Computed example of a mutant assay.
Amino acid sequence: MTRIIASLAEISASYDALFCDLWGCLHNGKQPYEAAVEALRAYRQAGGKVCLMTNAPRPNQYVIAQLDRMGVPRDAWDIVVSSGDAAQEALFQGAVGTEVWHIGQPKDDGFFTDIPEGFEDAPAITRVDLSEAQGIVASGPFDEENETPEHYADRFRDALERGLPMLCANPDIVVDMGDSRIYCAGALAKYYEELGGKALYFGKPHAPIYDRARKILGLGGDARFLAVGDGIFTDIEGAEDQGIDSIFVTGGLAAEEFGDDVENPQGDMLEDWLKRQGRKPTFAIGRLR
C-alpha cells in the first residue's frame, strides 16, 4: 500500500540521490513552487544529491536557462538531465537518418544545432520537408496550444507509407502550463504507433535517461535512489522499471482524482486510482515540500 507522507524530510535520509521531475513538481511551467524548492535545498544541505530529470526535448543547457529565468535557484539541484540529452545522442548516431522532418517549435532548435560532445565529426543532420525525409523527429506539436495528434493524421499516413521511423524527444503525453493543458511529443508518437508506425523513446520511463543520470552523478553501485514525479506512466513507471522507490506527487497531472484538497490526497481515492493504473508508488504526497 502506498504511504502518504507530509514532507520529503520524513523519508529522505534513506536515499543518496533524487531523480526529481520538473513540471508539476518543481514548477508549473511559469513559476516555481517555493515549498518544493525549499525541500530540495534542505535535502542537499543534508548531503543528498538532486538530479532534475525532465522529459523536455531540449539539451539540458536550455532547461537550465529556463529554470534560471523562472527563478529556480541553482542551490536546489546538482545536475539536470533531459530527454533531449538522451534522444540527441541517438539522433547524431543516425537512429532516424540524417535528413529528418521536424515536428516542433523554434524553441527546440538547439536539439539540432548544439552538437553533443563526442559527435563533432558525425554526419550532419538536416531538417527537410516530409516528402524528402528519412525519418521524423517529434519534439512537440507545431502549435501546442491548439493542435491535437489527430491534426497530423494525413501527414502521418504519408510517412507510414514510406516506413519512416519517429524519434520522440519527449515521451510525455501532456503537461500543464499554468492553468492550460497542452499535448507533448509523446502524444504524437503514441498516435503514430496506433496508426502502425515505429517510435523510438529515450526519456522517462525508458532506461537511457536513467543510465545517463547515474553516470553523471558518479555515485557507487550501492547508491540508493528515489524518483519524484506526477507522471504515473513516466516518473512512477520508470522508477518501477528501474527497481527504485518513488514518490507520486498527487497534486500534479491527476490532482482532480484525489479529493478537493490538492495538498492532502484522500487515501481511499488514491488507492482505487492507483489500482486502476496498475502502479504502486512507494510514497505519495500532495505537493513536493
Rank of each mutant, 00 (worst) to 15 (best):
T2W: 07
S7C: 13
E10C: 07
S12V: 07
S12N: 12
A13Q: 14
S14Q: 15
A17Y: 11
L18F: 14
D21A: 11
L22M: 15
C25V: 15
L26C: 02
H27A: 12
H27F: 03
P32S: 00
Y33G: 01
R41V: 06
R41N: 06
G48V: 13
V50E: 09
P59L: 11
Q61I: 13
I64C: 05
I64T: 11
Q66K: 15
Q66R: 15
V72F: 00
D75K: 01
D75E: 12
A76R: 10
I79H: 13
V80A: 09
V80M: 08
V81P: 01
V81G: 06
A87Y: 06
A87L: 05
Q88E: 14
Q88I: 00
G97Q: 11
E99F: 00
E99M: 04
V100F: 03
D108W: 00
D109E: 15
D109Y: 05
F112V: 09
I115F: 02
E117P: 02
A122L: 03
P123W: 04
A124V: 04
V128C: 14
D129G: 14
D129P: 02
G135C: 05
A138H: 04
S139I: 01
S139G: 12
F142D: 15
E144W: 01
E147A: 08
T148N: 02
E150N: 06
E150S: 13
A153I: 10
R155T: 13
F156H: 08
R157Y: 08
L160V: 10
L160K: 03
E161N: 12
R162K: 15
G163C: 11
N170K: 03
I173D: 03
D176M: 08
R181Q: 08
C184K: 06
G186R: 04
Y192P: 06
P205Y: 06
P205V: 00
H206N: 12
D211M: 04
R214F: 08
G221P: 08
D222Q: 15
A223I: 04
L226Q: 11
A227C: 13
G231L: 00
F233N: 10
A239Y: 01
A239F: 01
E240L: 10
D241S: 13
G243D: 12
I244W: 02
D245T: 14
I247M: 07
G251D: 02
L253E: 07
A254Q: 07
E256H: 14
F258V: 02
G259T: 01
D261N: 15
N264L: 10
Q266K: 08
M269Y: 13
E271H: 13
D272P: 00
T282A: 03
I285F: 05
G286W: 01
G286D: 04
L288W: 07
R289V: 06
